[in-house]
Design a protein around this nucleic acid. Structure first.
Lengths: 191, 191, 191, 191
DNA sequence: ACGTAAGCGAGACGGTACGTCGCGTCTTACC
DNA sequence: GGTAAGACGCGACGTACCGTCTCGCTTACGT
């Protein structure tokens, strides 16, 4: 499907995806109807259904495209500094900031999907760093979920607060929190 | 509205809330319609609208009830061990495990609402412990969000995986992760 | 269903039937859409479907009403002259002339339905006149069909040609043709 | 268009007409869609539109072919006995019995078209027999319509009832009814 | 025999109507 | 006053056909 090179098809899909992103920003995901998408994309409503089963499938496709874009940018990175890697993540979400924000809280199960992807990425990174599961005294999936959820959390916070902090700074904060725990950053007398 | 003590009213609301919980478990939140609720609760559909504007409001009310229940249990706790506090949390969500699971990923913006509540709770706890914001080298809201999101994450993980680990054990894991960071738990050679 | 005495229901159905008749005359049966019916009747399209499955069912109902009206007029007749009976028929179709015309040629299988009804009526009339099937030298259903089809034919002709001939005159022609054959009316030298 | 002798064109049209007849028998005319025709004829849907505007036009063409076939058979007849002529008619419709049956009641206005053709034929026959309009005491078109409709009626009856009666016998019945009236065939005591 | 124009297959598209579903409002009658 | 019963307006849904339109391929015909 995706490798359809018919010009009309490509044009139709592009217009639909553009319309989708615009509408998500303007109205929020839930409020979007196929009618609105078709109108905005200047195609017929029936044509929408020739390409996507519903707005959820369209959202999936758009998300898949964004993910592919992010993954491609990750590939180009040969440096080993983890800060660079996470900086890319912040840079990527910043590019589609409002769109991500809207989807993360607006589509049921969407957050889970993104979080799982981050979890997988984290696992890969740690595996490459010589993760020794035998030495772990709590379930590995538990730790991974902890990290992934926390990471999602601050990404969302960053987007919500207008990205006042530079991406690289955020990546550094992220690593610090991951490495030493958030409580250690709170200036509590002891714990 | 809430202080209505007409027997018929209380009966109607109880049946609606029971029907709601049952249906969330059976079908998931999104799939629920007012028709299904009325049918299950054995009331007329129009009667539903006399009590709630829509299924979202009903969900709010049910959630508010559960929260009140949890808060009450927290009040009874006079011990100062934070493990006890979080054990209560795990115990509470365990009681309505599938229900919480369904809502957290099923209702748009619901996760945010719960997370914010946890965030506030965390802030209160830390304030009580002598939180010194001046000594913090990263924004406090950032750390709080990190903790709250992470906490939500592992609660969800625990519910998803069938709650094989005892609640108290989970509370201990939680504190450990919060205090020293998840990476420190991974048995990595160094970082 | 028909004995529903809800004022709104009766109002809705009346408006739909009026709209139907008007539209059949203006546009013809085939061209009618549910949308047009709803618009003309000033009701919502969905409301149409609460009363009729489709435009065909509506047509049936309207026709059933007209038939009942005709039958009622026949009941009031106590005279025995068959000319009187058939005069009533011509008078009845004249009342809804264009409507009948449109339906007879516009709805698939509609003509058959009306013709069968006439056939039954003819059979009853002849039975009451002492029809002796034993003396017949060709199949009775064949003769009946011959008569019914022919009768439909001249009724349609009369409607098409603007009903220039009085109803009673038509009834007389009809009986003459039925009794002596059309060829006998043609002034052919012999045959 | 019709004089196109390109092999491909002729092949396409033949397959479409065959498919049409088969589908009329299987599904009835109304249920047929251009899609079904194309599929059955193993041609592309767009190709259908290169030859016919819609299924109605295709029906017309097929009917025209059958009519031509019948007319040709009539030409070969040099006998003067009218029974022979009408026997040919019964023989012809018998050949495509179910097809005619389906079309007669299935296509709006189709019956009218056929009936008019019969009417014209009747008029010609009677004109050839020395029809004297001056001696007629009722409108000629009325009588003609009577005869044509009646004739259509018994042809349809014959087809519906499985053609148990031989074609020639039917032709004799037809003439008898036309000549002396159907009521005279009913064995009524008097009238 | 072979180049070419026509017929054709494949399928996207705009359009219109379909019948269904769910929503929230309303009226009427009952208790 | 709360409820049952259910009609209604509204608007979105996903589907089905329609007729039109490229765009290449292939095939029969004419020179």
């Amino acid at each position: 499907m995706s490798q359809n090179d018919d010009l009309r098809v490509r044009r139709t899909r592009k217009m639909l995806r553009d319309a989708f992103i615009a509408l998500v920003l303007e109205e929020g995901f839930e409020a979007i109807t196929v009618n609105m998408l078709a109108e905005r994309a200047m195609i017929n409503r029936a044509t929408f259904y020739r390409h996507y089963a519903d707005k959820y499938e369209l959202a999936e496709r758009v998300y898949a495209d964004l993910t592919a874009e992010y993954m491609a940018s990750v590939q180009t990175l040969d440096a080993t500094d983890p800060v660079d890697g996470w900086t890319l993540l912040f840079a990527h979400v910043a590019e589609y900031a409002d769109f991500y924000l809207a989807l993360l809280s607006g589509i049921p199960h969407f957050q889970e999907r993104v979080r799982d992807q981050i979890e997988v990425q984290l696992h890969q990174v740690f595996s490459g760093m010589g993760l020794n599961e035998a030495q772990v005294d709590m379930p590995l999936p538990l730790s991974l979920r902890y990290l992934a959820a926390a990471q999602m959390g601050i990404v969302q916070w960053w987007l919500e607060t207008g990205r006042a902090i530079p991406a690289r700074q955020m990546a550094q904060y992220l690593l610090q929190l991951h490495a030493h725990g958030a409580i250690a950053q709170l200036g509590l007398p002891k714990f």
